[in-house]
Write a protein that binds this DNA or RNA. Sequence first.
DNA 1: CAACTTTGTGACCGCATGGTCACATTTGGC
DNA 2: GCCAAATGTGACCATGCGGTCACAAAGTTG
Lengths: 218, 218
Amino acid sequence: MSRRERTERQILDALEAQIRETGMGGVGVNAIANRAGVSKELIYRYFDGMPGLLLAWMQEQDFWTSHRDLLASGESSQQPPGALVLSMLRAQIEALGKNETLREVRRWELIELNDVTARLANRREKAARAFIDRIDGLTPDMDVPAVVSIMLAGVLYLMLRSKTESHFLGVPLRTDEGWQRLYAALEHIVRAFPSDLNQESLATLEARRKAATGPTKD
Amino acid sequence: MSRRERTERQILDALEAQIRETGMGGVGVNAIANRAGVSKELIYRYFDGMPGLLLAWMQEQDFWTSHRDLLASGESSQQPPGALVLSMLRAQIEALGKNETLREVRRWELIELNDVTARLANRREKAARAFIDRIDGLTPDMDVPAVVSIMLAGVLYLMLRSKTESHFLGVPLRTDEGWQRLYAALEHIVRAFPSDLNQESLATLEARRKAATGPTKD
DNA sequence: CAACTTTGTGACCGCATGGTCACATTTGGC
DNA sequence: GCCAAATGTGACCATGCGGTCACAAAGTTG
């Protein structure tokens, strides 16, 4: 590992730590450089400024983000639609629940509109469409994208909201108990899917529900 | 109207306009004072600084915000639980859909944690609990708060997300057509409620669905 | 009219930000 | 060893921020 690679690592790690601790609002050249113990000039020289640094960091995240995505979508191609949806929702809960940095980025995506967020939005929507299209055909007389949108969006909102509020409609957002209730609610909704959820697949998922995990402070 | 009241109005209106156009990120003493065409000193003198100004502005909003809440919860105390939930969701969609400022504030509530946001959270959760508690008892063997949390949170997320992304899972977030699909999805979910939605109440709601409205740019 | 209060203004301060530059130090090839 | 490229640093600049202050103009009360 060259000397340069080492300091680039320091900078990237500092970015991650800064996002986690202060949110995207506290991200700037000075803060990152100080935290990395390095001169800010290097951020411009090696990454061409903050946008470039963010892009570079994103690309690293993509690595195992898309890894997760592939896992979630590939693991069970033969399951009924409802089970697929539940797996995907569970994957989202787990991925977001144990990664405060990820949650901060997604909060940021809600308010900021620029090159970086646009790129993130594109990539996400592309992957999401690929997932939903495989299910949509199998379930006529039901607007699958719309119903799943509500469920997924609900999970996302509650994940993000857990930072500033401990409960939502009385449901705790910072305990595993609360998230088990929410996951059970998702099951309840999916159970209304037309031709779906035979006994075996539901039993499989039920076993995994016990391990449901909400947001942690790292 | 005294001279002071007039300039206080100018400041409050400037705050609202600033929030709508730039989001809470662009809110500051200098920006507000300039937009109001007034010296920033007056913000400190009359409102004791930005937090006080925000509080004062919030209190005005409370006026018809709580008004709406009362309407939504009082209009139909005798309807079945599912219909009540649908009414409440519809009210949320309408209130948020036509008020970009409100959406910006709620985005802000997701990232910032301070006196003002804490107060907002308290008030909201209090009202929400009052609503959900009236329904919860009526519907055993189902975790009503959890299911409604998913639906309401889903609506909120998609409302907020419409600023930076035009689609979610392929569903358009900036057209009435998209929001009619989403509202229909909510109906679909509610239909799975235990003892619920006789023909009349559903027909009533169906008629109103035609008027579903998504976010507008004001 | 005179004295006093309210209302409003613009200048000023300290501070942090993003960005650039000149200059040291280190590394690696000839 | 020697020179050039790579790596790193600290100082510096303009700008915008929140906040305060002295002072002017407009109203009000005696």
